[in-house]
Computed example of a mutant assay.
Amino acid sequence: MKTQQRIFGAHESAAGGVARAVERIRAAGGDALQLFTRNQRQWEAPPVSPGEAQAFARALEDWGPHPVASHASYLINLAAPGEELSARSTAALAAELERCRALGIGLVVLHPGARTGSGTEEALDRAAASLDAALEAADGEGPLVLLENTAGQGSTLGGDLGELGAIIERSRHAHRLGLCFDTCHAFAAGHDVRSPQGLDAALARLDASRLRLVHVNDSKGALGSRLDRHEHIGQGAIGQGGFAAVVNHPLLAGLPMILETHKEKDLEEDRMNLAALRALVAPGRREPKRS
C-alpha cells in the first residue's frame, strides 16, 4: 500500500530577522514553518530589503526543501463595514503578499474577518471584495491566500465552515485562494474533531481540494465554547485520541501540520508537541526524513 508523508512543524518567531525563524524551526526539529514576516501588531511595515531576502533564502537552502507559510496580521479585517478599516486591511494584505513574493513564501494564512454589527451576507460580500482588491493591488501572480476557519467568537466569520467557501465563491480570483484548517478553532466552534467520524463531518463542510495547511492546536475550551485558546497536544479538550484522528486522516495526509502553541525561547515545548504528534502516526504511515 502506498504511504503518504506526515509533515509537522511550528510557527516560529522572526525576532531578529525572518532568517531567524528558519534557525528556530531547525532547532526545534520541525519540517514546516509558519512565521510573521513583520510586526503583526502594527499596520505599517517596511518592504523586504534585498539583504533580508538573501539571508532568508540562504537559511531556507541550508534547512532543506520544506513548506513555509506566512500568517497575515491579526489587525486585518476584510469584512469590516467601515471604509477606513476596510481600506487599511486591504492595503495591509496587499503589502503582505508583496513581502511574501519578495521572500519566496508561497502561502499566506488569513482570518476571514468579522461582521462588526452587520449582516452575514453583507460581510461575506465585503470580505470577498476586499480580498479581490488586495490581490489586484499586489499586481501579478503570487502567494496563495489560505482562509482559516475561526472559533466563531464574537462576530467573526469562519466559525461556520461553509462561510469560507462562500467567500471563495464570491471572489473573482478563486484560483489564488485556498484553505487552512485549525483544529482548536473547529472544535471551539462546535465541530467535534475528536473522532474520524466527527472529523469527516467537519471536513465535508469544506472543499477538500483547496486544503493546503493544517493548524494542529489542542483546545483549552470545551466543544462549542467559542474560546480561541490553544493548548499543547493531548493536554486539552481534543486530547491524544482526537489528534490521532487528525494526523492519520487521509484528506490531511501530506499537508503541512503547524503548531501554534506557546513556547519559551528554548523551544522545548515545540519539541514536546512535535514528538507527541509523531508518536500518533499510525503504523504504515511515514514522515519525511528530517534534516
Rank of each mutant, 00 (worst) to 15 (best):
K2W: 13
T3Q: 14
Q4A: 15
H11E: 03
G17I: 04
V18Y: 04
R24P: 01
I25V: 15
I25T: 07
R26G: 15
N39V: 06
Q40N: 09
Q42H: 09
P47N: 08
P50R: 15
A55C: 14
G64I: 12
H66Y: 05
H71F: 03
N77A: 02
A80D: 11
P81N: 01
G82L: 08
S89G: 15
A91S: 14
L93E: 05
R101D: 03
R101F: 10
L103Y: 11
H111T: 05
A114C: 07
E121C: 02
E122C: 01
L124T: 06
D139A: 12
P143I: 12
L146D: 00
T150W: 00
A151W: 00
L157G: 00
G158I: 00
G158D: 02
D160R: 11
G162T: 04
A166D: 13
H185C: 11
F187E: 00
R194E: 05
P196H: 11
L199D: 02
L199Y: 05
D200Q: 05
R210F: 11
H215T: 07
L227F: 09
H230G: 09
H232P: 07
H232T: 04
A237L: 05
V247G: 06
H249I: 07
A253K: 03
L259P: 15
K265Y: 03
E268G: 12
N273M: 02
A282Q: 15
P283H: 06
P288N: 13
R290N: 14
